[in-house]
Design a protein around this nucleic acid. Sequence first.
DNA 1: ACCCGGTATCGAAGCGCTTCGACAACCTAT
DNA 2: ATAGGTTGTCGAAGCGCTTCGATACCGGGT
Lengths: 336, 336
Amino acid sequence: MVTLAEVAQHAGVSASTVSYVLSGKRSISAGTRQRVERSIQELGYHPNAGARALASSKSNIIALMVPLRTDMYVPVMMEIAIAVATTARIHGYDVLLLTGEEGPDAVRRVTGSGLADAMILMDVELDDERLPLLRDTDQPSVLIGLPADTSGLTCVDLDFGATGALCVEHLAMLGHREIAVVGEAPAVYERHTGFAERTLDGLRSRARELGLRVLHRPCEGGYDAMAATLARIFDERPGTTGFVVQNESAVEPLLALLRQQGRAVPEDVSVIAVCPEQVALQASVRLTSVAIPAQEMGRRAVEQLVAKLDGRETDEVVLLAPELTVRASTGPLTGG
Amino acid sequence: MVTLAEVAQHAGVSASTVSYVLSGKRSISAGTRQRVERSIQELGYHPNAGARALASSKSNIIALMVPLRTDMYVPVMMEIAIAVATTARIHGYDVLLLTGEEGPDAVRRVTGSGLADAMILMDVELDDERLPLLRDTDQPSVLIGLPADTSGLTCVDLDFGATGALCVEHLAMLGHREIAVVGEAPAVYERHTGFAERTLDGLRSRARELGLRVLHRPCEGGYDAMAATLARIFDERPGTTGFVVQNESAVEPLLALLRQQGRAVPEDVSVIAVCPEQVALQASVRLTSVAIPAQEMGRRAVEQLVAKLDGRETDEVVLLAPELTVRASTGPLTGG
DNA sequence: ACCCGGTATCGAAGCGCTTCGACAACCTAT
DNA sequence: ATAGGTTGTCGAAGCGCTTCGATACCGGGT
């Protein structure tokens, strides 16, 4: 294992000079710099992370807490995680992967031990028990998701309220008057993760303004659950012609069931999904959808965090504007 | 930030004593131990990770390299990653998340800087360019996946050869004679990730022994791609009655297409999927499947790695035995 | 010739921890 | 009573780096 001192000796300079070449914190003459850089190359030197962290009180590591549950939106989570890792590398940070399992203790452990310089939390609940700790510590953090009280926190999320509104507007424009919302599993609502409720609220209030009727039904993923949910929906509101689906694993079953019941998409009923692009593109009908910009969310979260670490000012809440892409699953209500 | 020295002073002992209480590497009297532990509690002490790493040359971090591509088996990857993180914590390690993006450089960086004590690589290609580096360094590593040459490496994977054989045996037993294999996207084969080929090899050789005909077609995920693939299959082998699908995102489209063509599952054709349990359970037909034991793979990888770090002997290759679960998508060939 | 402000480099201290050798204090076994 | 072995604790060195003066050198103004 090559050390700074060895590089210094090889280049015929002092250790501190090598350090300054590396960090650029003091000016170094071109000649010296080149000699040092050549020595680094030749010896294959890599700074020791532990020593660096100890001396500088900076680990250059960002902790990412992902939910332990793998029951929902897994591809989204993964995409966010990968975007976080990739963006962090660009800014010179590595990413430590923590699972939600440890809960608040993980926050204490990481802040206490100086393992990471900052953290990103995913799957934030409305009244998350980790939030007081974050407010207390001076370690920067960014949430992906929106808790009830954002004061003193920095959050990045899709504007789910606007997402809901957007869906309902599109359907209204096409002439639909009765909308069914196929939501996430009941557990998601009980957990108060926020995004599901926010979508619903945005959707409902816009629907009220536009005079549409909305029926919301949570739904576990899968074919059987969707079948039961769909039956209940048509039972209660036979006139339903528009569907908004916010549950990846209910999308394909819904399409299959509608087909089976002889309801054509989009001639008889329209379907909008709130899901990643890939799901919308791979479904048996190319879906009109509002994309969940997972990559963008991960990227923005890191950028906010790096800004904080650099002492720059950051926004309190970054809400990404939803975009609706019209594809083959929605169309005008023809006749009656 | 509380330090060891402060704890020592508070407890009225020397710093080294506190260190030994923490590590248990020397005997400490019960009284002293309790006093120190109380001080640690009261002051809320957490050892500084950097200092510890520097002094002990151990970071207690495991690096996990996940593929950058999010085009395949994402839930499997995520589940593995989470299992790795969870299991690592149990053994006192944290997990550093690296993306495949940096490639071999990441290996150099991590081993060189002492950022991590060991690494786990996912998505290993048959002739992966990172392997020479791993063989060269004395840093322990475990691969999830199976390269062409495993000498000097430790690998954990599902026994995909046996998986293929198992599928064909089940279909043969039910009386099927013509089998179609719907494989991964062509890109996966071109990349030589191994598992796809191994499944196919196992399947083919068992089919030969049992006298079945096999037709293999790679398939991009999604409805349209599956439709094209299916058309080609029935065109070439109209007598096909058994399907083996090794591509999550082709499963549901296949079922929908068969239904649409009036072929009943399992009365007319049988379908076996190689996929995570959840996919098999949520499909529109409950699928007979061979599960991909993602959690088990992550867990075993960490356990192998920890064994290595502890200086214990490890297996070179851990192949998990596949298990076929019979559900509603396969049945005996009725009549002809 | 002299002082001045830059610029380039060095030396030393110190970050918080682990670990080794030393050393008391005690307990047997002679 | 004394040598020899345990057991529990301490002090100091050192891990590899950053960073803060200090120093030496240079050219320009007077």
